[in-house]
Every structure is written in structure tokens, then in C-alpha cells.
């Protein structure tokens, strides 16, 4: 009887372990398609103007160059990321570099507003209206 019960316990914990493993896989494998956006944007009362061409990369990916009003997609895997934005002048020289780490979750938006980020706005990750 006890042997049977021990077996049950082992089986149950094995199943539990597999379920947890599944959640972990979900966590590390979850992909997001992030829109990086270099357009003028209004968040709350503040308006952030897109002023310059920027070079952007997330987690050290191949840098993307976005001119004013440019927008592109970067695909990432996982929840925690570091974005690196470089503001460029007319001669493609870097004026300013901003690096910021951020965490996504199920409810956060997928639009990363670069002017807002450069302007120091806290909610620079925007949920798009469907």
C-alpha cells in the first residue's frame, strides 16, 4: 500500500515537474515582434518630436537605421531585453547613445517609441489601439 502511494507521489510530482518545465519553456521561448518607431508621438500631455535619424538595436542585434518617421520590426525571444539607441547627425556621426533595459509582459504593448525613449518618457512602450 505504501509502495503504491509512493509511486503515486512520484508520478504526481513528475507530472507537476513537466508542467513547470512547460511554463519555463513558454517563458524562455516566447517571441515578440516589436515595432521600433521613430515618429512624433503624444503620450499623456507630453509630445515627443522625432528630430533625427537613429540607429537602434536590441540585445546586440544587427543595428537598424531609422530616418525620421521610419518604422521597422525587430523580433526578439524572451521577456528581458536591452535596447540601444544612437542618435545620428547629418554625417551619420553618433551624437548621443541611450541604453535601456526593459521587461515585456503579456499586457505591455509592442510599439517602442524611440522619441519618447530619448525624451525620457517612462511609458515609452506603447499599447497600440487595435
Amino acid at each position: 500500500m505504501t509502495a503504491m502511494r509512493r509511486r503515486r507521489v512520484v508520478q504526481a510530482s513528475l507530472v507537476l515537474l513537466l508542467v513547470l518545465f512547460g511554463f519555463w519553456l513558454y517563458h524562455i521561448g516566447k517571441g515578440f515582434d516589436l515595432l521600433v518607431d521613430n515618429k512624433t508621438i503624444t503620450i499623456g500631455d507630453a509630445t515627443y518630436r522625432a528630430t533625427a535619424t537613429v540607429r537602434v538595436s536590441i540585445d546586440g542585434s544587427e543595428p537598424l537605421v531609422l530616418t525620421k518617421r521610419g518604422r521597422d520590426v525587430i523580433s526578439v525571444v524572451g521577456y528581458d531585453h536591452v535596447i540601444r539607441v544612437e542618435e545620428l547627425d547629418m554625417d551619420d556621426e553618433v551624437i548621443r547613445t541611450v541604453e535601456k533595459s526593459f521587461t515585456l509582459d503579456r499586457h505591455s504593448g509592442d510599439l517602442l517609441s524611440l522619441p519618447a525613449l530619448l525624451g525620457g518618457e517612462e511609458n515609452w512602450i506603447v499599447l497600440r489601439e487595435p
Partner: peptide, 19 residues
Amino acid sequence: LITDWMILGLPGLTLAALI
């Protein structure tokens, strides 16, 4: 299911097998 959830790469594959 994993395609809908956007679980990519090897974790996605393993999760599909797990489901």
C-alpha cells in the same frame, strides 16, 4: 498552439512535444 502563442526555436519545439 505554440505557433499561436509565438513560442520560438527549440523551446517552442519542446513545448509542442510536451503538449
